[in-house]
Amino acid sequence: MGANAEKKDRCGTVCLKYLLFTFNFLFWLAGGAVMAVGLWTLVKKSDYISLLSSRIYAVSAYILCLAGVIVMVTGVLGCCATFKEKRRLLRVYFVLLMCIFLLEILAGVLAYIYYQQLSDELKSNLKNTMVNKYKQPEQDHVTQAVDKLQQEFKCCGSHNSSDWMESVWVRTSESGKRVVPDSCCKTPMELCGQRDHPSNIYKVEGGCIAKLENFIMDHLKLIGAVGVGVACVQIVGMIFTCCLYRSLKAEPY
């Protein structure tokens, strides 16, 4: 009877080992995906971050990058702990899983909070940023972001093209008698912004605010879903870890 019970326990331990190994492999892939989403936000869309007064959007992306790196390292540690059957390694692995879980939940919560306040922030700050910082000294990052925003989303001005009448840059001789930046033009070329006729520039209802708001809201949904989704999957990993930990004999000290 004792031998049979021990054999069953051993079979259960082996099954748990392979389940946890499979989880760790998938977890490692998920870590790469999480890090990729964070890096894509920071590298490809970093220009738009400079147009936002709040840093929550960027912080959420940084948290995802950090969590992704830790996830990939933890996945390797989890595989080692599983096959070596070391209770101490499993304890470290469980603690790391818990830390990643909290980081990803935090990223998801921050994305949700910022999602709620994004519209008000853009309405109160985007126009001020565009008309007061565009083409101004030491504001090259803002200038590049505005030009990219207007060309990529085919819009002109925060609410509409007439917003540029209040621009500090447009009122100076440096504008070359432009009434809007050249990036507002459907076919950008030098001094094309001198003519603001609808046939020449983008006239979009809601202006760039509506376009940028929709883009960031969609991306915040992605950040939140990735963070919370992977965190929920980790609960399965923590359960497997606890089960394997309990099935292993205590290590002698």
Rank of each mutant, 00 (worst) to 15 (best):
F27I: 01
M35H: 06
K123N: 11
Y253N: 14
N132M: 05
N128F: 11
C232V: 15
F25Q: 07
K17A: 05
G78D: 07
G75Q: 02
D182N: 01
L20M: 08
C156S: 04
S183D: 01
N4T: 13
N4W: 14
T129I: 09
A250F: 14
V92H: 12
L220G: 11
L106W: 10
C242T: 08
R88T: 15
G38Q: 05
S173D: 08
C156M: 07
C80N: 06
K221V: 09
K7I: 13
V142F: 04
Y115L: 12
L16R: 02
G32I: 04
L19A: 06
A107H: 11
K148G: 02
V71S: 13
Q117R: 12
L26G: 08
V226S: 06
Q234C: 05
L244K: 05
V109S: 03
W169K: 02
R246H: 09
S119R: 12
L212Q: 05
E138Q: 13
S167W: 01
H159C: 00
F101A: 02
V95Y: 14
L126A: 06
V95E: 09
I113S: 06
G31R: 01
S161N: 15
Q116F: 12
R91C: 14
F83Q: 08
M189I: 15
E85F: 08
T241L: 06
K86Q: 12
K221M: 09
C192G: 00
E138W: 15
A145C: 01
P252H: 15
A61D: 06
K44D: 11
Y57A: 07
A231M: 00
C232H: 09
L52Q: 01
V146R: 01
C80D: 04
V14E: 09
R91P: 11
L248F: 08
F215V: 05
F240M: 01
Y18V: 07
S167A: 03
Q194R: 12
K123S: 10
M165F: 14
N160A: 05
G78R: 08
G193I: 02
N4R: 14
N24Y: 01
A58T: 15
G224K: 05
N24A: 03
M98F: 15
L77T: 10
Q234N: 09
A210N: 09
T241D: 03
L97A: 09
S175E: 12
N24Q: 04
Q144A: 14
V73F: 13
